[in-house]
Amino acid sequence: MIFHRLKVGFHRLGSPPTFHKLCRVLSPWLWAGFLVCAAIGLYQALYVVPPDYQQGDSYRILFIHVPAAWQAMAGYVIMSILAVIALVWRIRTVEIMTMAAAPVGAAFTALCLATGSLWGKPMWGTWWAWDARLTSMLVLLFIYLGIMGLYAAFEDRRKGARVACILVLVGLVNIPLIHFSVEWWTTLHQGATIRLLGESRMHPSMMSPLIWMTVGVKLMFGAALLDRARNDLIDQDRRKNWIRQLIGEGATGDNA
């Protein structure tokens, strides 16, 4: 019985008004969660954790850099899963969500590159190096931009979304390349310090703010994704009846 109700609920999400309602209800909670997590995380990162014995205070940028980098890649994986659902089941709201994920992912990729660059100047002595990790991250940014550009270039938004979904799946090849780039090529960027399995090579005191920031960034990704999807949906359906009813019967009366 519960499974059946879940299934019906999932199918209802394909309907624009239901999807719109869900976005509107969920997004403030996600934003609130992000603010709480980020407040705790940033407080710990800036005041509680001691300075690094070599880098002093400048290492603290990692609490933004690392969650942003993770989210840039996780966002791409989420976008790819959405793209498969959109292409296979042709659900319009999922197509819109896939396209909404691209600008948010691009923003996190840009944030990751910018913070890395700011840290690199005092630490590596250069803003940029043509290292495997950095280059593959830059390529990820351009893949995100290509997806956004392709979606925007179509007059028929649905067709644009579907074509861009194919590009999303093609670009997925880059994700393992980014992830393993620090292990396959020994260049400037350090290897993975934090492991899900086994012991991390990071001081335990730094873990807590990093976890708070990571959770916060994930919530923010979700909130921004839902907000963007909702706006895109409203924009596409602005002449449809359910939007008019949403605005209120009075507006409908004026137009009629």
Binding site: V139, L140, F142, I143, L145, G146, G149, L150, A153, L167, V170, G171, N174
Partner: peptide, 10 residues
């Protein structure tokens, strides 16, 4: 223009 932007990262 879009075409060259798509080709470049790949």
């Amino acid at each position: 223009v879009l075409l060259s932007i798509l080709v470049f990262p790949m």
